[in-house]
Design a protein around this nucleic acid. Sequence first.
DNA 1: CGCTGAGTTGATGACAATCAACTCGGGTGG
DNA 2: CCACCCGAGTTGATTGTCATCAACTCAGCG
Lengths: 260, 260
Amino acid sequence: MPYKRIAFDVTPEPQTRCHECPVRALALFKGVADEHLDWTQDYRSNQYQLPAKHDVYQEGEDHELAYTLFSGWAFVYKTLTNGKRQIIRFALPGDFLGFQAKLTAPMSHAVQSLTQVTLCGFPRSALAGMLSERTDLASRMITMNARDMALCQNHLMGAGRKSAKERVAFLFLELFHRVKSLGEILPGSDETSIAFPVSQEDIADAMGLTAVHVNRTLRELKDDGLAIATHRRLEILDEPRMAELAQFDAEAVLGDHPFL
Amino acid sequence: MPYKRIAFDVTPEPQTRCHECPVRALALFKGVADEHLDWTQDYRSNQYQLPAKHDVYQEGEDHELAYTLFSGWAFVYKTLTNGKRQIIRFALPGDFLGFQAKLTAPMSHAVQSLTQVTLCGFPRSALAGMLSERTDLASRMITMNARDMALCQNHLMGAGRKSAKERVAFLFLELFHRVKSLGEILPGSDETSIAFPVSQEDIADAMGLTAVHVNRTLRELKDDGLAIATHRRLEILDEPRMAELAQFDAEAVLGDHPFL
DNA sequence: CGCTGAGTTGATGACAATCAACTCGGGTGG
DNA sequence: CCACCCGAGTTGATTGTCATCAACTCAGCG
C-alpha cells in the first residue's frame, strides 16, 4: 500500500470563483444565495491541486484545512498498526472532506487522491463559526453527514454479513450511481459504464478482502455476465441482477436528500 | 434472531419534565438554556416505555417519531433478505435514535431494546423545523452525528480488517468506556466492570461473527486474563493490554466533543 | 531494454462458519 | 415441589471462504 506525499501547491491558474462554481449545487454551499457567496469566498482558503496517489492529509496529522472536493476521485481511509488499510468511503466532486467531531483534534482518518484532484480548502478553525452563523450551512452539513452516515452503515452491513461477491457488487452499484448522478461534472460515463480509477487493491481495502481474492471475485462477476471492471473502466452488464445480488436499493441508499 | 413487537404505551407515571431531565446534559438538548426548555417540551411528543427485546421501529417502517433514549440499552441494526443481521451501533442514555437524511422516508434501519427502555419521542416531521429555528440544536446535532460517524468508521475498520479477538476486545472497551462515562445515569458499574445486557449472539451480530465463534473468542479473552463477559456483566481485567490488542484509543474514539 | 506496478493464476493453510450434541440455570405449570 | 421446557451458552467435528505465499504475465514508460 504505497503512498506518496508532497507539499501540494495552490493552483497556478486563476482560482475558480465560488460564483461560477459548477460543483456548488452538490456541495456544502448548495442553496447559498448569490449575495452571500462573497462571504463564503472570504472563508475559503484557496484552491489546491494534488496528483493521483498522494495523501491530502494523514491520520493523526494536525491539519489546518477541511475541503470540498472540486474535481477527481479520492478516498477516506484508516490504517492499523500492522499496516492493514481500510477504505472508509470514496469521495467524488462535491463531497466534503475533513469534518469530524472535534475540529481542533488531529485527523481521525487519512484522505488520498485516486486521480489528480482539485480541492477547495477551508480553515477548520473557521468551520464552527461558519456553521453557527449560517443556519443554511448547518442544515446542509447535517444533510451531507447523514448521507455519509447512511453510506457507512451500508458499508458496515456488507463488511459484516455479505459475501465477497455481494460486497463488490454493492460497491460497484454505489459508485456507478454516484458517478452517473454527477453527469458532466465527472466526464467519461456512458449508458452502462463509467471511468473508474480504482485498482483491485483499492477495492480489496474498501471491502475487507485481499487483492488476490478481489481478482477472483471480479472473474466471477464477469463470468456471470454481471459486471466488468477493467482498463480503468467499470461496466455494469446486468443491473437488475446485480442489484438483487448486492441487495442494493438506489433510492434508499443514495440521492441527495435535503432533510427539510 | 427473535424479536417481539407490541404497541408500546406512554409511561403511565407523570412524564419527566425536560427541566428536570438528568439525561439532558448528554442529549440533543445539551446547552439549551432553561428558558427555552418549554419550547423543547412543546415539541416533545411523549415519553414511552418498552420492555427488553422489542423493536422500537423496524427497517422500512414509516415511523412518525424520533427519540432520545432516556434510560436502558438499545441497538440499531439492519437485516439482509437471508435473515442475517448486522448491529450498527449500541445506544445508551442520551443517544439520539431515528435521525436520517430524508426525514420523510421510511426508516433505513431498525432499533431494538436490550433492556427495558424509556424513550422521549419527537415528531420526525418537526425535526427539520427545530433544527433550522435553533442554531444551538443544529450544532449539537452535528456534534452528535459526528460522534456516531466516528463510531461507525471504527466499527467498519474492525469488521474489515481485524481478527475476531481484536474486534470483540474493541467493542468491550468502547462500551465499557461509554457506560462508565454515564456515571449514575446507568447504574451497576464498579471500578473494573459494568452491567452488560448483551448476549453472545448480539456480540456476534455486531462484529460480523457467529455466536459459536464469539463464545470461543470470549474463552480466549478470559484465558488471556483480558476480560470476562458473563452473567450479564462485563469485567475488564487488563485494560492496557486490551487497548493494545484492540488498537483502541479512548481519547480518539469517544468523548463528547463539541465541535465549537 | 529492462523496470515497475497492476493484474493473473495456482497451491496451501488459517480462521471462522456450519452442523450437531450437550449443559446449565431460570422460569412455569402440573 | 418437582418435572419440564426454553433460551443461552458450551464444546467437538467438519467444511468452506478467504488469506497467504509465490510465480508469472502484461502494458506502460524512462
